[in-house]
Simulated assay, not measured.
Amino acid sequence: MGYGELWEATHVEFLAAAWATLQLAFGALVIGLIVGLLVALARLSRSRPVRRVALTYIELFRGTPALVQLFIVYFSLTEIGVQFSSFQAAMIGLGLNAAAYLAEIYRAGLEAVPKGQVEAAKAIGMPHLKVLRWVVLPQAIRIVLAPIGNVAISLLKDTSVASLIAAPDLMLRAQDLSSVYFMPLEIYILVGGIYFALCYPLSLGVRLLERRTRH
Rank of each mutant, 00 (worst) to 15 (best):
M1D: 14
G2R: 08
G2V: 10
Y3I: 11
G4F: 12
E5V: 13
A9I: 02
T10Q: 07
T10Y: 06
T10N: 10
T10C: 10
A17D: 02
A18C: 03
A18S: 08
W19Q: 11
W19V: 11
T21M: 14
L22T: 07
Q23G: 15
G27L: 03
G27W: 02
L29D: 04
V30D: 09
V30T: 12
I31S: 02
V35N: 02
L37S: 04
L37Y: 06
L38R: 07
L41F: 12
A42P: 00
P49V: 00
P49H: 01
Y57D: 12
I58M: 12
E59M: 06
E59V: 04
E59G: 05
L60W: 10
L60N: 11
L60S: 12
G63E: 04
G63L: 03
T64V: 07
P65D: 04
P65M: 03
A66E: 12
V68Q: 02
V68W: 02
Q69D: 13
L70R: 02
I72D: 13
L77M: 09
I80W: 13
I80A: 13
V82Q: 11
V82E: 09
V82W: 14
Q83C: 08
Q83M: 13
F84K: 08
F84S: 09
F84D: 10
S85N: 09
S86C: 03
S86G: 04
F87K: 14
Q88H: 11
I92R: 15
N97H: 12
A99W: 02
A99K: 01
A99Q: 03
A103H: 04
E104L: 08
I105A: 05
E111I: 00
E111H: 00
V113W: 10
V113R: 10
P114L: 10
G116I: 05
V118E: 15
A120N: 01
A120V: 03
A121S: 12
A121D: 12
I124T: 15
G125T: 05
M126G: 11
K130G: 07
L132I: 15
W134I: 10
W134M: 14
P138G: 14
I143L: 14
L145M: 06
P147I: 07
A152I: 07
S154P: 07
S154F: 08
S154I: 05
L155F: 04
L155H: 04
L155C: 03
K157T: 05
K157Y: 12
D158I: 01
D158M: 03
T159I: 04
V161H: 03
A162T: 06
S163L: 04
A167L: 08
P168C: 11
L170N: 08
M171V: 15
L172C: 05
A174P: 00
Q175T: 15
Q175C: 14
S179L: 10
Y181D: 00
P184N: 13
P184L: 13
I189F: 07
G192F: 05
G193C: 09
G193A: 10
Y195A: 01
L198Y: 06
C199Q: 00
Y200I: 01
P201W: 06
L202F: 01
G205C: 02
V206G: 00
V206C: 01
R207P: 09
R207H: 15
R211P: 08
H215S: 14
